[in-house]
Design a protein around this nucleic acid. Sequence first.
DNA 1: TAGGTACCAG
Length: 558
Amino acid sequence: MNHIYKLHARLLKTGHHNHPLALRRLLLSCAASAPASLSYARSIFDLIAFPDTFAFNTIIRAHADSSPSFSLSLFSKMAMAGVSPDHFTFPFVLKACARLQTGLDLHSLLFKLGFDSDVYVQNGLIHFYGCCGFLDFALKVFEEMPERDLVSWSSMIACFAKNGFGYEALALFQRMQLVGTVKPDEVIVLSVVSAISILGDLELGKWIRGFISRNGLEFTVSLGTALVDMFSRCGCIEESMRVFDEMGERNVLTWTALINGLAVHGRSAEALRMFYEMRNHGFQPDHVTFTGVLVACSHGGLVSEGWHVFESIRNEYGMEPLPEHYGCMVDLLGRAGLLNEACKFVDGMPIRPNSIIWRTLLGACVNHNYIELAEKVKEKINELDSYHDGDYVLLSNVYGGVGRWAEKAGVRNSMREKRISKKPGCSLINVNHLIHEFVAGDNNHPQFESIREFLVSMIDSLKVVGYTPDISNVLFDIEEEEKESTLGYHSEKLAVAFALLCFKDSRTIRVMKNLRICHDCHCFMKYASDVFEREIIIRDRNRFHHFSKGSCSCRDYW
DNA sequence: TAGGTACCAG
């Protein structure tokens, strides 16, 4: 900002401060320093009697990121003033539209005006469609481009990553390298790291790290932070810690990434230690940091520490707790079996509890067999959002936990009436650089028969040492023997059986699952880690479970 | 004549 004031002062001194060229120069300087200089930029823009395309472009650009609605209002004003847009205008307008996820008619307008063949405009369109979730449109623009620059590839890869299509992002990155016309930079690699985080594939994680150093890419704070997060999501918190230790410069996001990683890996005490160490290094925690610390307390059963951290948000840091912090507290109390306290906490919340808060409480009811409370909580959820399949599964599990099969069947009927189906469990595993997908109850894998046979023999050998299949979590009221075989087909069991068949050495088995692991599978994995002398790491929807020598890192507290 | 797009991490 200082250089703008100096420039303005010089213009005032020489009497050129109202000269159109001087105003343009000032406006440009302000636009380059956005968002700090936005109000100043607006006042200069207002001084220009007849703003031309360049002036409009500059002011639209300056607001595209931080005040996208204002950018769009300026674009309308531009049209009303009869000032024509040019090929510079649209990338800025598209950026604003991407932020607001609006403006689907823009493509036809710029097509009509003949700006659709400009690479910057096309890149803007890819980014815009990607942000709005219209991947097909983004891909169409990308594929039809006669020439692509680094930003075109980067935009399309980011589109895939942002929308959860990890493999597609990686495949495109590979295609880009095969085409070989552009050289990857730190920006594009950040999207690739994010794609690998979605997949949770450690082999790929190690590869991208090597790629970064082989290609001499600058190890920026954001790239380092993304790697800390990625390794944690790939199930290797040790590697996250190594990257963290090697980073010369860190910021609050880096510390938070590590704290969150430690929390979901069940290393609660270390997460708390890092939180206090971070403060000693002079970094102020933000809302995300607090969420990580509270998750650590919750998963570690650290009730009093959790209370202390929660209260410090307001008392020490002067921040207002967000709904997710209240959610963490409900989880903390509920997990610890303090259901009455959890209810009191929800009743005393200064904000209206959302369905997530109630759902958290419902989960606690399942873990501690609080049937009446679960029924009341489910009613509360129904008032807010009655179509969430997971809630029915939880309620069904409460009834199953105490053998109330008639009520359990009632839950099934109610799901049928509302046409709600249970999302199938799905587990992924990397075997010899190939990802295998297992879906509960699905026998499409080419080696399904041998996997199933091996799984049956596994279950038999685990039963010998004390494993008893727990049938209470099976959703429907079916015969006992059938229930047992339904459990036998849970996707994570199939994935682990497959890994044991494939891996002849003693390497760690790593599985990624879309839903929470059930009690029976959790018990099965503990026995399997002992009997087969294997470390098994499962990433479920909430956290990581490290099974080793008959026990789990979550200490059965998840 | 100037001005441009992607990533922006937790």
